[in-house]
Write a protein that binds this DNA or RNA. Structure first.
Lengths: 323, 323
DNA sequence: TTGTATGCGTTATCAG
DNA sequence: CTGATAACGCATACAA
């Protein structure tokens, strides 16, 4: 920066201003500084800038795994929101482990990130306190709570599960099965699913859990396992990939869908509209979740104190042919 | 840090050492510093550390889009490799635009990242020079070249496309179609596919391109478009999701697979093993690509000068029932 | 509109 | 094994 200043015949600060607040410089000055920057191929050191300004320009996001399209969609949305304001995105994966989340949070706080996006509302003990002490904006996603650490954008997994059960019962299916992972959000959906079924006079639902992250093949296996001990009329899968696996397994077994067994997915991924039969699913706005999370952070960083703290994006059952 | 030093009755440097090189401290000193750190809830400022040490502890990765499982798998692998060495991962998306890639690279160089992982081997002009001047390790992924910017880990997309064509012809299919995006790597696969077909005496292949990022539904549409003007016996899709869409479309049209039309995918995603019929695909080690990229960077950062520069992970045709 | 002085919180170097 | 001192490269308050 000193070299640039010398080359342009100005002082250090002027170079700094040419980069950060160009409109506060005389056009001629600005031009000569920019020319010098180009000529010397000067690349401003953001680390030094961060240290001096105590703003890192970095937002961190923590997801269970990026190799699951629902979370990668959210990260995509978040990245979109941030790129416009020149924030950079630091990414961490927990692999569904609370202690990993805590480790990542510590590491990111050390980096003095300007904001943090978390997945879920359950965290290791101590995390909440550390985040509150850090005094940075935090958004929890993919679920809702009345008492977020700071802000939250998501939907009620419990209500979504309940809605799925009620939808299926409304359609006339009386023997319900649930296929899902055992992470917190799947568990909430299951609880809601059971409650919805109970409310409709169905006291018990079949449950088959699969490891998280789950995949197409787990869906097929789960249906296989269910059919060994029972004869479900409708299967609700906590993720469209599982549901696709169930559809393929139905094809193998020559089960008509929805005639012999109805199939319902979750998340309304692009695949849902492309299957045969097209998949009835619960739409949850994965990408928008990231965008809104980003928007909440940016608003707070801009100083908008009156921004919302809890955004319920809701969900909706998208009816297609499979159920 | 000063507070901690005072509380522990040592100097600043000793606190720094307790954090970075604990084995060079007397056990008693270390213990008292650690106690003070805990007591005061001291969170070391990595930004200041980076500035002083001129090592940021950050690796950046740039992918076309994270919302496509092949790239998110690679990012996953990379993140895995880095987390063990306490490197953090900065993520950027180009959305298949060279100028976005250039912008991101500049931003990341400004952040003084310790290493960079790129997707593909084509970049905007000037990028190569800037990266060489930055003197940081760079890994290009998802393709190979004899002249990488620095290092590369991938496979030959051209050879993979060629192998797909030869495989299909070997199986007796004489009318070939290609469904793929129009990004560089898909283009390379198409070129290879055409070459392979030509070598087997098939001068022309049908081609249907879809927008990137592509999805299941595009696969169905593409098959639809192809069938309007021709009658392909075998379809090679440049991505398993497209292939799954083709399978579903076949189901809709009551085309037997592979009897009426054979379907071949690419990447061997988890879905490939779960479809009905299971999908013949080209396996390309997406996750390992990220892991190896991370390993190459780490080796270089450790100072291993004699590390490899080009890693060909190869590919293999995984034969299943669909072709 | 531009410049001067100061500090951001560490690590590296050297000395003891 | 520990400490004193000088960077690291920039942004901010204040002055001109």
């Amino acid at each position: 920066m000193e070299d640039v200043a010398r080359a342009a015949g100005v002082s250090l600060v002027t170079v700094s201003r040419a980069i950060n607040t160009p409109d506060r410089l005389a056009p001629a000055t600005l031009a000569s500084v920019r020319a010098a920057i180009q000529r010397l191929r000067y690349v401003p050191n953001l680390t030094a800038g961060s240290l001096a300004s105590s703003r890192s320009g970095i937002i961190a996001a923590i997801v269970p795994t990026i190799a699951n399209s629902i979370f990668s969609d959210t990260v995509d949305g978040l990245a979109q929101a941030l790129v416009s304001q020149r924030y950079q995105l630091l990414l961490g994966q927990t692999h569904y482990r609370e202690d990993e989340e805590a480790r990542l949070i510590d590491a990111f706080l050390g980096r003095r990130v300007d904001g943090l996006v978390l997945t879920g509302i359950r965290h290791a003990r101590g995390v909440r306190a550390r985040l509150e002490r850090a005094e940075i904006p935090v958004v929890e996603t993919w679920d809702l709570t009345s008492r977020p650490i700071d802000m939250a954008v998501g939907f009620s997994n419990h209500a979504a599960g309940r809605a799925a059960a009620r939808y299926l019962v409304d359609k006339g299916y009386d023997s319900l099965a649930f296929i899902g992972g055992h992470d917190d959000r799947s568990a909430a959906r299951l609880e809601g699913f059971r409650e919805g079924a109970r409310e409709c006079g169905i006291p018990r639902v079949l449950v088959e859990t699969v490891p998280s992250p789950s995949s197409v093949i787990d869906g097929g296996r789960a249906l296989d396992a269910l059919c060994r001990s029972a004869r479900p009329r409708a299967v609700f899968c906590t993720n469209d990939m599982l549901a696709a696996g169930v559809l393929f397994e139905c094809q193998r077994r020559r089960f008509a869908v929805p005639g012999r067994v109805a199939v319902m997915g979750f998340a309304d991924l692009p695949i849902a509209a492309g299957t045969e039969p097209p998949l009835t699913s619960v739409q949850v706005h994965s990408t928008e979740m990231g965008e809104r999370a980003g928007a909440l952070l940016l608003a707070r960083l801009r100083g908008d104190a009156d921004a919302e703290r809890i955004v319920d994006l809701g969900f909706s059952v998208v009816e297609r042919a499979s159920a």
